[in-house]
């Protein structure tokens, strides 16, 4: 969590102030966190214009819905990133055909790197997620790839089946077992994330 330029305590204070309609606090929240949200949105949406649109949408929601944040239930940055990610998934659902068939003259995707390798490497660079990375590495290759493709690319079961060239039922099972094993692993290692 140390990557935010503000501490979790400060972010929690800011969110409480935003709930009271404090515009200065909202501006500070934006300064602290927009680069974190934008990085995630770029990673998922792969286009600057969509990421900027989703960033605005996310902060609009944060402004309107800050009362739904409960400090006891997790880190504030995680909550902010979750809002951004759900917004990105919604946008992808609406725009997926464009993603799959870019037309001439469109802004090209920002990254053509192998999406199944890239996220894990980047996630590893991040402090505080070592355990998650370790547990992901402990999964079977297909399970890990399925989870990461779903997380970062917003793939559906059907899209996973196509990309991974496997029957739909098999892919569904990879996702479910992957999630289940991931959870078991995270709980067995020490439970910090479970409290």
């Amino acid at each position: 969590m140390s990557r935010a330029t503000a501490t979790p305590e400060r972010l929690t204070e800011l969110l409480a102030a935003v709930r009271r309609g404090d515009e200065q606090a909202f501006a500070e929240l934006y300064r602290c966190c927009s680069a974190h949200l934008y990085a995630l949105l770029l990673r998922i949406l792969q286009r600057r214009d969509w990421a900027e649109e989703a960033l605005q949408d996310s902060f609009l929601k944060i402004w309107q819905k800050s009362e739904t944040y409960e400090p006891a239930r997790g880190a504030p940055l995680t909550w902010l990133l979750t809002i951004a990610r759900y917004r990105a998934l919604d946008l992808l659902r609406a725009k997926r055909p464009e993603v799959e068939m870019p037309e001439e003259g469109e802004e090209p995707p920002l990254s053509m790197a192998d999406p199944t390798q890239d996220p894990l490497m980047r996630a590893q660079e991040t402090e505080g997620v070592g355990r998650l990375t370790d547990c992901l590495r402990g999964l079977q290759e297909e399970q890990r790839r399925s989870l990461l493709l779903a997380y970062y690319e917003g793939y559906t079961h059907q899209e996973l089946a196509r990309v991974l060239r496997a029957p739909l039922g098999t892919v569904k099972s990879w996702v479910r077992r992957g999630l289940s094993r991931l959870r078991d692993c995270l709980e067995s290692v020490g439970g910090g994330l479970e409290r």
């Binding site: 990085a39 995680t78 990133l81 996220p119 505080g128 997620v129 990461l148 997380y151």
Partner: peptide, 11 residues
Amino acid sequence: GGLAELEPVAP
């Protein structure tokens, strides 16, 4: 949540 924490990019 940890997967969402990437290298920040200024919008």
